[in-house]
Design a protein around this nucleic acid. Structure first.
Lengths: 237, 237
DNA sequence: GAGTGGTCTAGACCACAAT
DNA sequence: TTGTGGTCTAGACCACTCC
């Protein structure tokens, strides 16, 4: 069989995949030069224009940087997010060509505190589902997701395997989204959060709080903590 | 002379500019089909590959959508989150029924550092306008606005009275907005910033960086520092 | 001067949509 | 069948960097 795989995948895309794989495998590190266009064209047995498209697109995606007359280099990683899009963090990480993994720290039924009862429009003491998950990008923690879920909207929440699907992805299916409130703040994290994110003491966190509405009631309230020194929201229009 | 303008601008970029101009001028509306690749190639007297690159990039930028076998269409505009609305902070404060006031800390002509030259697409040492303004809500500082402005786009910037109008308000009028990049981070502020915001040491700041484009070039690069304990971005949709 | 990326050409073959 | 986009080629010339 060899490694033919003529699966319809365009050549320029296969070259992109190859380059991303090399970077993720650590063959080429940040700042390293990658092979030149003529060299890649020779390796793949394609024309330079095809290689050019692959490399140009990866440059537009900020995976590579190019310097005319000099060469093409692996870009400095920036952990950027597309802000308030209701997108799964796992998808976001994978879209950057990186590896997503999550650690489940807590998944249980718990009573609503006074503070938590309010956004759900409940009385304190009513039962909610509560999960705490750490999301890692290439094994570096980038988010602690502290989420409370309304059992009326997603009764099977506790039975999910959150190593395979993110709470966000599950809720998107289980509870059709009607609306969202969010806020973004800069806060000093409590010690437990700082530990989970492998942060030095007193480093600031970028905190996104999000409340989603479904079927006319609050479905979920999530607080997402990100290390300030390696995560940012970004976008353009 | 006609409209030759061989200003070094690559042909594919000129085609992109043309297509964007047609859309902004309302010649083509959402959902309308635009001319086919061969047709554009004929109009511009270039090869189809060149047109293809222009159209493909605009598709990646979500300005156009393409359907193989059918044609190329103007995409539906996306209604972005309220988050990064280009709103004046003065307006925002007044909308809360509070009193806005600003203190001008600096307003001068200064040379672009290496770091500042990059987002403007200039070389270090070229002259830029630089202002630092503190915005107060009911006499409590809530934002330090550190702004660099391209003199080519707003030549009268230094003559404005920024106790009466915010830089943002002025630039909205002086330089019609074409695009925005932004990022949001949580950072520990340098001492001078912390002092201007009357913050305790080591408190985190919520930092919004925004680059605005006008007339095809970078008009302004602003870094806005907010005290983490009394400011947040919020919205809903 | 040799090597790099930046752009462009004038063809080509294919998959798909509309008719 | 015709027209559309999707991809690819095998050259080319240029601007730039590095030596």
């Amino acid at each position: 069989m060899a490694a033919s795989q003529d699966n319809d995948v365009p050549v320029f895309q296969r070259i992109k995949d190859y380059l991303l794989a090399q970077i993720h495998a650590g063959q080429w590190r940040e700042g390293d030069a990658i092979p030149s266009e003529p060299e890649l064209a020779r390796q793949f047995g394609v024309s330079r224009m095809t290689v050019n498209r692959a490399v140009r697109e990866l440059t537009a995606e900020q995976v590579l940087t190019r310097v005319q007359g000099s060469g093409t280099y692996v870009a400095q990683h920036k952990y950027q997010a597309t802000l308030v899009e209701i997108k799964s963090i796992a998808e976001e990480v994978r879209a950057r060509g990186h590896r997503h993994r999550s650690e489940l720290h807590l998944l249980e039924r718990d009573k609503a505190s006074e503070l938590m009862a309010m956004p759900f429009g409940m009385k304190p003491g009513q039962l909610l589902f509560h999960s705490i998950i750490v999301h890692l990008e290439n094994d570096v923690p980038i988010q602690v997701e502290d989420r409370w879920v309304n059992p009326a909207v997603a009764p099977a929440y506790l039975e999910q395997d959150f190593s395979q699907i993110t709470p966000n992805e599950y809720l998107m299916v289980a509870a059709p989204l009607q609306g969202v409130n969010y806020s973004i703040e800069a806060l000093t994290p409590p010690r437990e959060i700082a530990q989970m994110l492998h942060m030095a003491a007193k480093e600031p966190c970028l905190v996104l709080k999000r409340r989603t509405l479904s079927q006319g009631e609050a479905a979920s309230v999530a607080t997402m903590w990100h290390p300030g020194n390696r995560y940012q929201f970004a976008g353009s229009f």
